[in-house]
Amino acid sequence: MKIKIDIIDAFTDVRFKGNSAAVIITDTWLPDELMQSIAIENNLSETAFVKRLNTQDYQIRWFSPITEIDFCGHATLAASFVIFKEHKGLEEIRFTAKAVGEVVITKSYDSYIQMSFPNRMPQKLKSVPTALIEGLSIKPVDVLRNEQAYVVVYRDSCDVISVEKDDEILKRLAPFDVVVTAKGNNVEGEYDFISRYFWPANGGGEDPVTGSIHTGLAPYWSARLDKNELKAYQASARGGELLCRVDGERVYISGKAVQYLEGVIHL
């Protein structure tokens, strides 16, 4: 059996930047064990498996090399890029996934693709896990958490860029990951906020660009900065840009994408 595969660099328009995701679109689900094996073989942050219902409606699942992931933004962007490329007349598509329900994807201006996600505002913690303090080289100013990750707030963007982590200690926080963030001062590009994302328990050491966590970061910084439209930068080695808009219970995340590979898997 042969299955088409695309690899897309998401949240960038420059090849070899942003976050790479593999996209596999089928009419029926592959067995779970096979999907996990393919994700391990791809060895990317995520492989998106998409079940086609019709031209506009799809179901989507995401697998890291370690496990199935509840919610992945950059692989959703990558899958949307592939579908829009194959159906050039489409302006809107819809994905459904268990953790986030229906996600409406639309073509936006200047090659941006906009994704509508639930608002996952983090909440302040009364007590901070010891593993979180011990696993990071810089102490937080504040710590919050949402359904996905601990949100570590730093005073300055330089702290986000320079912080070092201990993966073995941070693994103790499973099933939660860790995002560190600060206001975007001292960073080129005039970003409202920046971040880095660590997920040793679920995917690897550091994720290059994490669309899903911005459904929590954007509402947090929207409230802090008193603005609904924000420009974000994830300061990994590859780096990526995200445009965020907070509108009540929805967070709209937009990004660009570029094709890296189109190929065939032999099964």
Rank of each mutant, 00 (worst) to 15 (best):
Y58N: 10
G135L: 13
R155F: 14
E86D: 11
S137T: 15
N146P: 06
L125I: 10
F95L: 02
D156S: 10
M115V: 12
K51L: 10
A149R: 00
K171F: 09
K51F: 13
F49C: 09
A75F: 01
D70C: 03
E86Y: 05
I105T: 07
I60M: 06
E134R: 12
T47A: 02
A97N: 14
G73I: 02
V153I: 15
S111C: 01
C72M: 07
R94H: 09
I138R: 00
V163G: 03
D70S: 08
C158R: 06
V160I: 04
C158S: 08
L144N: 01
K98V: 15
N54Y: 15
M115P: 07
I69T: 02
E164P: 08
Y112P: 00
R145G: 08
I66A: 10
Q59I: 07
K165W: 10
V82H: 09
A174E: 05
D159G: 01
K139W: 06
T96I: 09
N146F: 03
V103K: 10
R94E: 08
I113M: 04
Q114K: 09
I138P: 06
L136W: 13
L170C: 13
L170T: 12
L173K: 00
H87T: 06
F81Y: 15
K51N: 10
A79Y: 11
